[in-house]
């Protein structure tokens, strides 16, 4: 197990470096000029431009720029944005907000996704099953930004149940964006749970449990659900790793100052250090959660062995 984790971490390192170089190269090597983007409409005096270019190593060859960046990175320095604020400070400020949003979304996925999936498996081809099939198809088809807009308008504006945007009301204002962020995965969780649960309920051990006279509730929860949830847990874990990417759209529409909004603003302003820093961190979480899931898989399902 330890060896397995070690090997996976070792394999993750070149991927992490590769991704950060990919983003770095895109931000710094392509024609867009970050200093010009910074200046906006007002032209900067040439001395200021020269100083800014020197400060951000923009005149070095690309690979040298990247190595300088890496050297700084390993000393825990993620660089500064053009206004002089350390990128690490931005992350420390924004990450907790996105983390809270992700927690709300995961709770939605678990509660609604799994419940719907289990009920569908128990009452296959009932009206409820068909309702879930149709509504998950619709949720998957409607683009997230349209969904966000609909939720904002219906639940926030018309019915007035939830705040429309911003985070002034703490956790409460995260319910609507959390629901939107979770919507797509909720649909997948429901379908995955349905398939997996239906398969488990037809398995021999469940039939045996029933024949022993165990109550139906116990059969479903202890013998069925426990086994059926293994692929679902895997999906949710991997989804958690991908959530920061999904948060870009949600946070932009709902005006939530999280990490997704931060990277969106940074991309638009072409603030290289911020983009590279945040994306590298996102990829790190992505790889990390996938590793956690793979390890967890073995814990949940003792049949799986790591050599």
């Amino acid at each position: 197990m330890i060896r397995y984790i070690g090997r996976r971490l070792l394999m993750a390192l070149p991927v992490l470096l590769g991704t950060s170089f990919l983003i770095f190269a895109m931000v710094y090597a392509l024609p867009g000029d970050p200093i010009r983007a910074l200046a906006g409409d007002q032209p900067l005096p040439p001395e200021v431009i020269a100083q800014l270019r020197a400060e951000h190593n923009l005149d070095d060859p690309l690979l040298l720029q990247y190595l300088k960046y890496l050297a700084q990175l390993f000393q825990g320095n993620l660089g500064t944005d053009f206004a002089g604020n350390p990128v690490s400070e931005t992350i420390a400020l924004r990450l907790p907000i996105t983390a809270r949003l992700a927690i709300v979304a995961i709770i939605f996925e678990i509660i609604f996704g799994i419940t719907a999936g289990v009920l569908c498996a128990l009452y296959k081809n009932s009206w409820f099953d068909n309702l879930v099939l149709v509504s998950t198809t619709m949720v998957v088809s409607v683009p997230v930004f349209v969904l966000a807009f609909l939720a904002q308008w219906l639940l926030g504006f018309q019915l007035g149940w939830f705040p429309v945007a911003g985070i002034a009301n703490g956790w409460f204002s995260l319910i609507l964006p959390g629901l939107v962020l979770a919507a797509l995965s909720m649909a997948y969780v429901a379908r995955l749970t349905r398939t997996s649960m239906a398969e488990t309920l037809g398995a021999d051990h469940v039939r045996t449990a029933r024949s022993k006279g165990i109550s139906e509730l116990r059969v479903v929860t202890r013998h069925g659900l426990r086994n059926a949830l293994i692929p679902v847990v895997t999906f949710i874990g991997a989804d958690l790793g991908a959530m920061m990417g999904g948060a870009i759209v949600t946070e932009s529409v709902f005006n939530i100052p999280g990490i997704g909004r931060a990277v969106f603003d940074a991309v638009r302003n072409q603030e290289g250090p911020v983009v590279v820093g945040i994306v590298t961190m996102m990829v790190f979480f992505f790889i990390f959660f996938n590793l956690v899931v793979d390890v967890l898989y073995g814990v949940l399902d003792p049949r799986i062995r790591y050599e």
């Binding site: 991927v15 990417g245 996102m282």
Partner: peptide
């Protein structure tokens, strides 16, 4: 390497 970067980003 590419897989880690979200499509939209």
């Amino acid at each position: 390497i590419f897989y880690g970067v979200p499509l939209l980003l």
